[in-house]
């Protein structure tokens, strides 16, 4: 299941684990990324907490945790090569996997059509 947030994140939900990244729209708005800081595995985060930080040439931005949960894995590849987020934001540029405290909470997120309307 593919979902989106109004903070320009995408989630692919499989069972109770969501793979999270930023949307192509967000990546384009941020510009070329030069630095990514990701949460460590095992970190428990509330919805809205700062989960990651991304920096472009010009500015730093926070990436928020889309739902309550616990980080089970972070994508070291984008730490090593932040440009992956720009070149493949909704694929190889994923940020982290989040074990959801309440998998039913995904129902409140945006579907693709609603997100497209948001950025239109």
């Amino acid at each position: 299941m593919l979902k989106f947030t109004d903070e320009h994140e995408w989630l692919i939900i499989e069972g109770d684990v969501a793979t999270v990244g930023i949307t192509a729209h967000a990546a384009e708005q941020l510009g070329d990324l030069v630095f990514v800081e990701l949460p460590e595995g095992g970190t428990a985060l509330d919805k809205g907490a700062t989960a990651a930080t991304v920096e472009s040439v010009k500015a730093a931005s926070d990436v928020y945790c889309p739902l309550d949960g616990e980080i089970v894995e972070s994508n070291q590849a984008i730490v090593d090569d932040p440009s992956l987020v720009n070149s493949d934001p909704q694929g190889a540029g994923w940020f982290f996997k989040l074990k959801l405290s309440d998998p039913s909470a995904v129902n409140a997120l945006l579907d693709e059509a609603a997100y497209k309307e948001l950025i239109a």
Binding site: G31, D32, V57, K58
Partner: peptide, 13 residues
């Protein structure tokens, strides 16, 4: 303009 379509990195280089 903060940047043109090429983006800050390409413009700089």
């Amino acid at each position: 303009p903060v940047q043109y379509p090429a983006g800050v990195m390409k413009e700089h280089l």
